[in-house]
Simulated scan of single mutants.
Amino acid sequence: MKAPTDLLTVGEVARRAGIATSAVRFYEDRGLITSERTAGNQRRYRRHVLRRISLILVAKRMGIPLSEVTEVFAALPDDRMPAKRDWERISRRWAGHLQARRREIEELEREITGCIGCGCLSLQRCRVLNPADELGEQGTGPRRLPQRDQQRPFD
């Protein structure tokens, strides 16, 4: 076991990472970070978890789901700081996500420009306000789903 000065409490990790202690516990519950237990059953974290938490926060800002972060972290060592090549591999993988998001945003910009240009704002015809509206093809007005497809609210 490491010397006590090499380990951080939940509160220290949270304070240094700028997150709530509940988030630290949540990340541990999800298997994204690990802790050791003291004789008094208190959690202690190695300092490298701060890097992992930083990467989690970056992924969150990029819109990368925690399920993918979990997948990426599964290939990282738990007992030490990941190497530079580990971070480079993650960076390359997530660069693809950023490029895909950039393309989606550019498509949205083209759609909204077209929408503003056309001025229709029609729920019946507008792809931007009402994408993939299959019922709209049947005409205007409300539609009632068949009974078998409805969920009963109090069951």
Rank of each mutant, 00 (worst) to 15 (best):
R148S: 11
T113L: 14
H48A: 11
I90E: 01
I116V: 15
V72A: 06
Q150I: 13
F26E: 03
G96V: 10
L76F: 00
R52Q: 03
R43T: 07
I112K: 13
R15I: 06
Q124E: 15
T70A: 06
M1I: 12
G96W: 07
N41V: 09
D155P: 01
R47Q: 05
A14C: 02
T5Y: 14
R101Y: 11
G141S: 05
A75N: 03
P142L: 10
R101E: 09
T113W: 01
H48T: 10
P82H: 00
D133S: 00
G11T: 01
E111L: 13
C120Q: 14
E88G: 02
P153Q: 04
T9P: 02
L98S: 08
A100T: 14
A17E: 01
L76I: 07
R51I: 10
G136V: 04
L32G: 10
R92A: 12
C115P: 01
A83R: 07
R110T: 13
Q124D: 14
E104G: 10
I53T: 12
A75G: 11
Q138W: 15
R148F: 13
R80L: 14
W94S: 03
M62N: 08
R51C: 11
R51V: 10
I116W: 09
I56K: 04
T21S: 12
W94R: 05
D149C: 06
R110S: 09
E68F: 15
D86A: 15
R110H: 08
S54M: 02
I105D: 05
L121P: 06
D6K: 14
I90G: 04
T34R: 01
L123S: 14
D29M: 06
Q138H: 14
E107L: 06
N41L: 12
V72W: 08
L98M: 11
G11H: 00
R15M: 06
R102A: 11
P4Q: 06
K84Y: 13
R47F: 07
Q150C: 12
R52M: 04
L66P: 03
T113Y: 05
V72D: 08
C120W: 02
L50K: 07
Q99G: 06
E36G: 13
I116Y: 08
C120M: 11
S22N: 09
R16N: 04
A17G: 02
Y27W: 09
R148Y: 14
L98G: 02
P153S: 00
Q147C: 03
D79M: 13
G18K: 03
R148W: 14
R47S: 00
L57E: 00
N41H: 13
V24T: 09
L55K: 07
A75S: 09
D6Q: 15
A20N: 04
V69A: 07
R101V: 08
A3V: 12
T38G: 08
C120D: 13
P65F: 13
P142S: 11
G119W: 15
E71W: 00
H97N: 00
T21K: 15
F73H: 03
R30G: 02
E88D: 10
P131A: 03
L123E: 15
R61Y: 00
F154R: 09
L123Q: 15
I105T: 01
